[in-house]
Write a protein that binds this DNA or RNA. Structure first.
Lengths: 252, 252
DNA sequence: TGACAGACTTAGGTTCGTCTAATATAATTA
DNA sequence: TAATTATATTAGACGAACCTAAGTCTGTCA
């Protein structure tokens, strides 16, 4: 079973763990890694050597462990795949957090980039399409828990239609409401209308597919509004305030 | 990476392949297996020995290969997982057949039974819920292909509502239409209203969760209507005509 | 500052799944 | 039926990922 990605499943797990540990407590020690991955200490040493050889980490015996740029990218990508899958299981299939996490941990190594994108788009679509939405998903929950019976359909659709018209009336009068990304608050979601960010970050945004139409969610805003953590297409991104100001958003 | 199931991923692949080959050409020879799985002949020999030891197959050197009951069950289960996943990727996420198949081949080994059920329910729900349906999924396709833009929402929902009311008028007058499973034709789908099948088959149906509320699809009907191949919760099942006559269906 | 505990590594072994090369069996065909 | 060809198996090796047991390093504390 060949992995779809640059390293073996096992190595992806090590990378993911190293990244998480570093982000949590600044340094990653073999002991922590061993504990999290439930393997023996020598296994960790072996993995570290292997990862160092492939230039995913900086490492020499007894030295501290840091990720190379390559390693960080790889780790972030694994985590992104995990998050998207877990999110899908929890939010769409309404699976419990623990199981969603466990299965995502295994699937993250085998899902293809293309299908990743589809999962992301699908979740987005559910959020945006007036025919779907939270209410609709809870209808799925009802279906699962009641032996395949549907909730009151006609009323459900009537309500949806009313809501849509209501929204349209409002929206139609005020024209489209747009805001700058830095004006939103954690938890807010929106659709990108325009990206006007220059330099390295601008390029990075484009590379990640952050263009008009993309869904963005604000995750965290540091004091004084800098930096701003956002989630785009399953990626976690950190932006400077000035950079965020260059992105125009239509709140959803 | 421990498998969720009774055998390793690799052995699951062998079982699946053996089952498919037997069903296609009556006997499975190591050569065919090697070719399909793209491994060397000695690898196959090794796998066969291992599977025989675990009593999944009947096998001794140079002898022909047959599945034990245990092996057949295991193989069918793998194939079922594969089918459900591939189906979801193709029908819901609108992924191309080839990629859907490839990714399903890898995911089938790691998906949990619970999440399997959810995938199945979700697909069913999409088919039944008037707020979703084929039209809605094609809306997702539009969304994917048009950079995150939605099709005409208001019209879409209005139509849905009209359709639903139309159907209700008809249905309301005629009361619920029910048929026996053996009266349906290939491609037809329906919801189980009652199961009245005795003996071994009846028990098997219950074990597989074929109870009131379950969605059933007719796959193939042999000449003279016996046997009838159906698909239930991702399983392929073959029923005698008399058995099918014991199952009451509300066509969808 | 020197001894000790805890953390890390080395050494060496196991299992799984794969391979190539060599050998044995079965099937085909002259 | 004997020779040839195709197919299977045995033998032996390898890499990945894990393990236990036995050192080795390092930071802390008396």
């Amino acid at each position: 079973m060949t992995s779809t990605y640059a390293v073996s499943e096992s190595m992806e797990d090590y990378l993911k763990t190293i990244f998480k540990v570093i982000n949590k407590q600044h340094v990653a020690r073999p002991k922590d890694i061993a504990k999290i991955l439930k393997v023996s200490a020598p296994s960790v040493t072996g993995a570290l050597r292997s990862l160092a050889e492939k230039e995913f980490i900086h490492y020499s015996p007894y030295d501290l462990i840091t990720l190379t740029q390559k390693g960080e990218n790889a780790a972030k990508d694994v985590i992104r795949r995990h998050d998207v899958l877990q999110n899908f299981f929890e939010k769409v299939l309404l699976v419990e957090q623990k199981e969603a996490d466990e299965v995502a941990c295994r699937m993250e190594h085998v899902v293809s980039p293309n299908i990743m994108d589809r999962f992301i788009s699908f979740i987005e679509f559910l959020e945006i399409c007036p025919r779907a939405g939270e209410k609709w998903i809870s209808g799925f929950g009802y279906y699962c828990d009641h032996d395949g019976k549907l909730d009151n359909c006609e009323k459900c659709i009537e309500l949806t239609l009313e809501n849509l018209r209501e929204k349209k009336r409002k929206g139609g009068n005020e024209a489209m409401v747009v805001k700058k990304l830095n004006e939103l608050e954690p938890g807010n979601k929106g659709r990108v209308v325009k990206v006007a960010v220059s330099g390295e970050t601008g390029r990075r945004l484009v590379e990640m597919g952050v263009t008009a139409g993309t869904m963005v969610e604000i995750e965290k805003v540091a004091p004084f509004g800098d930096p701003i953590d956002i989630k785009v297409k399953g990626y976690h991104l950190s932006l400077r305030k000035e950079e965020a100001a260059g992105i125009t958003i239509e709140p959803v």
